[in-house]
Write a protein that binds this DNA or RNA. Structure first.
Lengths: 161, 161
DNA sequence: TATTGTTATACTCTATAACTATA
DNA sequence: TATAGTTATAGAGTATAACAATA
């Protein structure tokens, strides 16, 4: 199935949603930029905020990214004062990445904004449509999951054993 | 409003949807990679497929990206045989970027897949929930648009005149 | 003088490979 | 021998700035 996210901007309602979401994201990234943050680095902060101090190895797994990449992201976040590297108490090879005061403050604001956004998006929607929206989205999620399983279930139909 | 797309993976249903959509996108990007395509380059092809031959300047505007960036994307697509640069008939400064046969074939497949995906995602959803989903999404779109207008309406509240 | 596209330069995100210090 | 994180290197996407050719 050939498909790109950015391409989804040309049909029906989901496409309109994605188009608006992209505008919204651009605004948000601009705001993050003022704080010296990028999307990738913010994602690291978010993971730390919700999971607590973490080794870089664990971060690499959660972010689905190489350890080398994490080194760079943490370097940037350390230079801008959002995180701190500390020795791991039990394993002298490993490093514990921890949010600084500054990092914690920003993430608390982001979590609050995130929750407020979810409320705000749903405000004024009557219960019937809200139920339909929920069930419809879950339906779409299940269909997508099925498509993913289907695609991955056929292992390399290109001939490579 | 502090916010990142990748962060939206931790609340309610929209977050689940985005998480699944990301998995789906990863699969699709892998498939694009087999064709020597990336997301950014595919987006160029998509615009050309739907808008016809275009100058690089126009592409830069549509993609919301710098002209320099377009140069690089078109270089890549030209090297892999998806597009062709041709002189502009009326303006000797400009270049017309055109899909090659290969580019057209790929985009036709993508458009077909895209339409089939939209159908597939909705299949089996009863009319009531489908109506609720539609109205709910439009509601969310309008709320997002309102938030964007609101944020942009206040011009630089940081003090810069 | 303004516009189109390019060269030059730089930064971020990402990846692989080789290496160090530790388990 | 395996694991955590680093240095080295590379490629894609993005940006700004300076410049050539053309309007």
């Amino acid at each position: 199935m050939l498909f790109t996210m950015s391409v989804l901007q040309n049909t029906v309602i989901l496409d309109r949603l994605l188009a608006v979401a992209q505008l919204f994201t651009e605004d948000s990234e601009r705001e993050l930029g003022k704080l010296g943050l990028t999307t990738a680095r913010t994602h690291v902060l978010w993971v730390l905020h919700h999971g607590g101090p973490s080794t870089q190895r664990a971060l690499a797994d959660v972010l689905a990214v190489t350890p080398r990449n994490v080194t760079g992201l943490v370097d940037g976040l350390e230079a801008t004062g959002y995180v701190r590297r500390a020795p791991h108490p039990d394993d002298r090879r490993a490093v514990l990445v921890t949010l600084t005061e500054r990092g914690t403050v920003v993430m608390e604001k982001m979590a609050a904004d995130h929750a407020a956004l979810a409320d705000s998006l749903m405000a004024g929607l009557d219960d019937t449509d809200r139920g339909g929206l929920d069930r419809g989205l879950i339906h779409v999620i299940h269909r997508l999951e099925a498509l993913i399983v289907e695609a991955r279930g056929t292992p390399e139909q290109d001939g490579a054993a």
